[in-house]
């Protein structure tokens, strides 16, 4: 769980501990654009040695979604 959270802090360096919420949606992030999205996917794939499909990738709109996806793959 902490590792997934770490990915969010790496992709969004300005994100504060207080500002993080597992259920915050994409719109609540100032700079969760398509590049950030791809970076989240790439980091998750690399850190957990998994492959995320295009359909799975497009379904992620919160940190919890990514966490659930990673859990289902590992």
């Amino acid at each position: 769980m902490e590792e997934v959270k770490k990915i969010f802090f790496e992709v969004f360096p300005t994100l504060s501990e207080e500002g993080f919420d597992w259920d915050n949606s994409q719109q609540k992030y100032e700079n969760w654009d398509s590049f950030a999205h791809l970076q989240l996917i790439t980091m998750a794939e690399e850190k957990f040695n998994i492959k995320i499909s295009v359909d799975e990738a497009t379904s992620i709109i919160t940190a919890r979604h990514l966490l659930d996806l990673i859990t289902s793959h590992t």
Partner: peptide
């Protein structure tokens, strides 16, 4: 060094 460290440095 791993991919995520490099990527994280680039993001910053």
């Amino acid at each position: 060094i791993g991919i995520s460290e490099i990527m994280s440095h680039c993001i910053k």
